[in-house]
């Protein structure tokens, strides 16, 4: 994606990185982005036609009528020269073809799960597992309730033992921050292991 053109020279703009906030429809992705972002979540609308959608996903979309998919994102200025963007992925399955684009270059992802209907986030988990994109699970306890232990949820989601499952509240900044920190710590641990391989 990065050309080697002469016009692509380095300027004194901050570096940028991104993390995806994923999960099924209505699990609290936009809420989480808003909780940690230093700006009100911004939104862009992309026009779509049925041409970009899977054949099975045409239900509910009027033929030929242009529809749009909304993408919302927030920003955390990490330092003068580094800015972290958080992108809430479109939840509805028919918009999933956008995820590939979004996933390119992401540090990792938070997959939000609503324990009342965890199946709505299965596809998101599969997506990141398959692409080997690092992720943590954030269990969004609607109304602050967490009826299940992380261990039960990990088992139920058929996740490996080292997968991080965190109980959170998408409306609380501190809680969302902790989920993001867990993801970064996981990346740090993996990276440190990679560069200092343990002796045989």
């Amino acid at each position: 994606m990065t050309g080697s053109d002469a016009t692509l020279q380095k300027v004194s703009a901050p570096d940028t990185v991104k993390i995806l906030i994923a999960g099924g429809f209505g699990v609290g992705k936009t809420t989480m982005v808003g909780s940690v972002s230093e700006i009100v979540p911004l939104r862009t609308e992309e026009p779509l036609t049925t041409a970009g959608l899977g054949i099975d996903d045409l239900n509910g979309i009027e033929e030929k009528k242009a529809t749009t998919v909304a993408l919302d994102f927030g920003r955390i200025t990490v330092s003068q020269d580094l800015v972290l963007y958080l992108f809430g992925t479109p939840g509805q399955q028919r918009f999933w073809f956008m995820w590939n684009d979004l996933a390119v270059g992401a540090l990792g992802a938070v997959v939000l799960v609503d324990v009342r209907r965890p199946e709505s986030s299965f596809a998101a988990i599969d997506f990141f597992e398959r692409r080997k994109i690092p992720f943590v699970i954030g269990v969004n306890g609607f109304y602050g309730e967490h009826p299940y232990e992380p261990e039960e949820i990990r088992e139920s989601l058929a996740l490996p033992e080292d997968a991080q499952v965190l109980l959170c509240d998408a409306r609380e900044r501190g809680s969302c921050r902790d989920v993001l920190i867990a993801l970064i710590d996981q990346l740090i641990a993996t990276t440190a292991r990679g560069s200092h391989p343990s002796p045989p």
Binding site: T49, A51, D56, Q93, F97, D101, P118, A123, D126, F127
Partner: peptide, 28 residues
Amino acid sequence: MPPRGAVPSARRTAASEVSGGDTAGRLV
């Protein structure tokens, strides 16, 4: 809570439907 494997069609098809993933389909 139903286990993840319990909804095979939902979790198996969704990711594979994620096709080319570029700007195909956008217009107007």
